[in-house]
Design a protein around this nucleic acid. Structure first.
Lengths: 230, 230
DNA sequence: AAGCGCCTTCACGGGTTCTTCACGCCCGAC
DNA sequence: GTCGGGCGTGAAGAACCCGTGAAGGCGCTT
């Protein structure tokens, strides 16, 4: 289900958009200020944002600039301002599209579809992760070990764990974080489960599985990925 | 240097856009018909296309649809048609943006920058994909196998799957992504459906269908297209 | 009206993957 | 020294996924 964040301070607009989008099968999240929008993007991970320019507090452009500091989520600016300067400012601040009120719902939906179409998944940060003893090709979901670069096959769950750890290099990842990343927030597995998967991963990727150098245990807390152990 | 293809049948518009874009440091390529536009995209590899809707011969929408059969180059529709239906038709046919004449040069340039910004320098797209055992002619929707180059007929659905995978060479494509690309985001088919189509595709394109080298399964996740397996 | 191509669903067999369980180890707490 | 919790490892059954042959239904052409 596609999740849309609607940012507008007017109740009537929020309501109208919310109803129309929900009727088209979108999941709608609402925010009534720039600050709320920032929080909502961080917490709800919308697939796209509809942003009004005239907001209380930090305005639309400010919100857009702040968002662009850390996320590439598509943003369509929806506003009454029809002047060229506003359009240019918004587009150059990182907006993906600009549509002026009053707009037709059909056109908005079409522009929504167009923006979503060209962003199937967030662009991969770094397509490749290199460690001392192995190499990960993130877009292809492939792993290679040793100097020869022989491919090893990781199961979906194993890949999910490895990819999450690799995306947070050097950082401690708690058991809870890992479980949530792999199985979702509601899953509560046997404590052994992660251990078993980690054992499999180490056997496949570590040079000496019983003495792991890249996938390190933090006893009682979680695991940590070290690209190049000192 | 960014290369812009301007497609319009009116000399005055071509001239005006050409001058303005050149003054901003863009390299401009011109085409005066849909057919010429297709050739220009294939030959010149523009970074972005400005497309008029009212063209002689195959019209703008037809040109757009034909282009989308094999390339993802960003297309901004520039036209006098201001009705909602045209906008929706163009955006759903694969346009990235839609701007109506008369437009301000500033806004056009801003939308141009916005469209270019979100298009990561895509791998140089070629209208032809060559693998070890077969060859795909993307614009013509034709496939040829073996050294002799005998043509095989793919059904529309099969072609749709093959084309999507071929446009993402080496990348893992999830089941969901494939289904969305072929049948749309709301379709939720029997899990066997993709398997059956993949079997048909392999039987037609792979040298040894039971041991696929180009259309690889990633169990539990999706499929991957390998142009030249190591 | 019949034939054909295409899409989709279903049933089956074989293989892979997930998860649980039991056991022994290590290390800090007492 | 002893205890207990957390950890790694091997094994095993259950659940899942995949490829494949076959068949029904639909729309279009003949």
């Amino acid at each position: 289900m596609t999740r849309v964040l609607v940012v507008d301070d007017e109740v009537s607009i929020r309501k109208a958009l919310s109803l129309n989008l929900a009727a088209r099968g979108y999941e709608v999240v609402l925010a009534d200020s720039g600050e709320a929008a920032m929080r909502a993007v961080a917490a709800e991970h919308p697939d796209i944002v509809l942003l009004d320019l005239g907001l209380p507090g930090i305005d639309g452009i400010g919100t857009l600039e702040a968002l662009r500091g850390w996320t590439q989520v598509p943003v369509i600016v929806v506003t009454v301002r029809d002047d060229e300067a506003s359009k240019i400012a918004a587009l150059d601040a990182g907006a993906d599209d600009y549509i002026t009120k009053p707009f037709s719902m059909g056109e908005l939906l079409a522009r929504l579809r167009a923006a979503l179409r060209r962003a199937p998944d967030a662009a991969p940060e770094s397509p490749e992760v290199v460690a001392d003893h192995f190499r990960l090709d993130l877009p292809a979901h492939r792993a290679f070990v040793g100097d020869a670069g022989a491919e090893v096959r990781l199961t979906p769950t194993e890949w999910s764990i490895v990819a999450y750890l690799a995306r947070n290099p050097g950082r401690l990842v708690t058991h809870r974080q890992l479980v949530t990343a792999v199985w979702g927030p509601t899953y509560d597995p046997d404590p052994n489960l992660l251990r078993v998967h980690m054992a499999h991963i180490r056997r496949k990727l570590e040079a000496d599985p019983s003495r792991p150098r890249h996938f390190v245990t933090d006893s009682g807390v979680g695991y940590r990925f070290e690209p190049s152990p000192g």
